[in-house]
């Protein structure tokens, strides 16, 4: 896969090394036009700081929120975002595509 300018996994390891709670979000499926390819990742720490991206900025807020929840309860999450999803009206994928994002705690 093409390298990101931000190395998400290195950031995840650095935050874990500093004793922080960390969650990783990964684009696992896309349909239609979507800004970031499958495999794109975002890492969030327990204060809500994040590095990387899973979209062009449209759904990062919602994904970070779910990441924080995953840090708390340790459960994995499979999130759907897209025009057919009610949530799209709130978080909006302007490109009209659909993405599925897997969120998990790193521990």
């Amino acid at each position: 896969m093409t390298a990101d300018l931000d190395n998400v996994l290195e950031q995840a390891a650095a935050w874990r090394g500093a004793g922080k709670g960390v969650a990783l979000a990964t684009v696992v499926t896309t349909w239609g036009s979507s800004p970031r390819p499958v495999g794109s990742q975002l890492v969030v720490d327990d204060s809500g700081k994040f590095v990387g991206s899973v979209s062009g900025g449209c759904i990062e807020g919602a994904v970070v929120e779910q990441g924080l929840a995953a840090i708390k309860d340790g459960k994995t999450r499979l999130l759907d975002f897209g025009v057919t999803n009610e949530q799209a009206w709130e978080v909006g994928l302007a490109c009209g595509g659909k993405v599925q994002v897997f969120v998990e705690r790193v521990a």
């Binding site: 996994l9 390891a13 874990r16 990783l24 696992v28 994995t76 897997f102 998990e104 790193v106």
Partner: peptide
């Protein structure tokens, strides 16, 4: 993801070794 898995993927990347991480969704 387990910390150990994360460390192993980073070590493989540093060693320029191809690795595929399988995750049951």
């Amino acid at each position: 993801m387990k910390d150990a898995t994360l460390q192993q993927v980073l070590a493989d990347q540093a060693a320029k070794r191809a690795v595929v991480l399988a995750t049951d969704l």
